[in-house]
Design a protein around this nucleic acid. Structure first.
Lengths: 217, 217
DNA sequence: TCATTTTTTTAGACAAGACTAAAAAAATAT
DNA sequence: ATATTTTTTTAGTCTTGTCTAAAAAAATGA
């Protein structure tokens, strides 16, 4: 399994709900910042190796083997993120690039021991679930803040966009995972929200609310 | 800096006392388990990038930049080894292959934080020194057990061969880093040694004694 | 329905890093 | 001093993963 193959599997896994849905060549190309022709080439190779189901012009999905392999990469990525934040003083906006590298390290013992060392965490620093060794995880019911109705109350349990700029913006606003959020008002004009959080009241844009996951209490 | 380039730098660093001595093409090929022609190709590229000094038919040494880069890879390798042993229950014969992968992860913050997390260790699990950020390390005076004279006494501070079979053999004989060793007798016939260690007396072959470093007390 | 646009695939090329086989240089031995 | 052996380099090829340009298929729209 090459580094490149693992990255393609991961992209298909993320784009097509754990690789079950067929994903288009262009979607993969955009996600991976590469050309569609390169994607076609690699997809063929993955299909050849029984990692992907591919029918010309009809997109690609993952086989059971491919799904398991992708889940293993995602598991490693998220465990390393927990390590970086919990043990090495990284903040949640700094972990992605390093975890992208660490996720390709091959050693079953390493990842088993790391998992135990971290106390078998169930979620990464962005609230995303960590698959177990069989690729399974419990997906908690969560909705976007932008989908909440006025008066709704819940916990901030995850982000949809985990880019550094968004995470840094949340830090600046003192919006942290686990905070309780209550929707006070919705502005009709621009769909921005007035929310109660940390005993204060702040305004967040529609775009921000579109990237915050809430678990209703 | 590619993975392959880093591995060549490391090989030259190890073969020619921190890259200062000129190393032959064949020596590198053997060390890296590759062909001499491949080595020539890569050496040219390293010289092109000002990482190595290369004169046709006269071997290769490292430039200051090459030496620093190689030392950084070695530093990372050894710090990761300490992490694996101290934190993840790896034994000293299991760390090498994983550290070979981890040493190529690129993140200055990662390695700085790891170093601090581990308590700024000065040596890896095999007794090899860990270079600091500038590539410097204090080399402790140590000699091979096979060079000791009868009656000599000292501490077992390192191994020359750090292959799994040798390390496992030492484990089986209960010979561990830090143990005090005294040379009691040398057999003329096969140069094997009778040594006192851990309140017991054992025999070790010349070959074994050739791979054990002793610090005289 | 048929023309146009978009998506996907194919064909051919390129760079990195490895290899084999052959040539050239250096080292060794008679 | 010259012949032989060993080491090193060169020349040419291969694979992986990428790219561009062009062709083919699918989707869209009048």
């Amino acid at each position: 399994m090459t580094l490149s193959e693992e990255n393609y599997l991961k992209a298909i896994y993320h784009l097509g709900k754990q690789g079950n849905d067929a994903v288009s060549t262009n979607a993969i190309a955009e996600q991976m910042d590469t050309k569609a022709s390169s994607v076609t080439d690699m997809i063929k190779k993955l299909a050849e190796k029984n990692l992907a189901n591919y029918i010309k012009y009809q997109g690609v999905s993952l086989t059971e083997l491919g799904r398991l392999t992708a889940a293993s990469v995602v598991r490693k990525h998220r465990l390393w993120e927990v390590f970086l934040v919990d043990k090495l003083h990284f903040s949640w906006d700094e972990v992605h690039d390093v975890a992208e590298q660490l996720e390709h390290i091959k050693s079953e013992k390493l990842i088993d021991e790391l998992d135990a060392f971290l106390g078998h965490p169930k979620e990464d620093p962005h609230g995303d679930p960590i698959p177990d060794k069989d690729g399974n995880f419990t997906k908690t019911a969560k909705i976007l803040l932008s989908e909440c109705k006025i008066g709704d109350e819940g916990l901030f349990v995850g982000v949809k966009d985990s880019s550094a700029p968004f995470l840094q913006y949340l830090d600046k606003q003192h919006i942290s995972l686990g905070n309780k959020i209550k929707v006070l008002h919705k502005e009709v004009f621009d769909q921005s929200l007035e929310i109660a959080i940390n005993a204060s009241i702040i305004n967040v844009s529609k775009k921000t609310a579109d990237n915050i996951y809430i678990q209703n209490t």
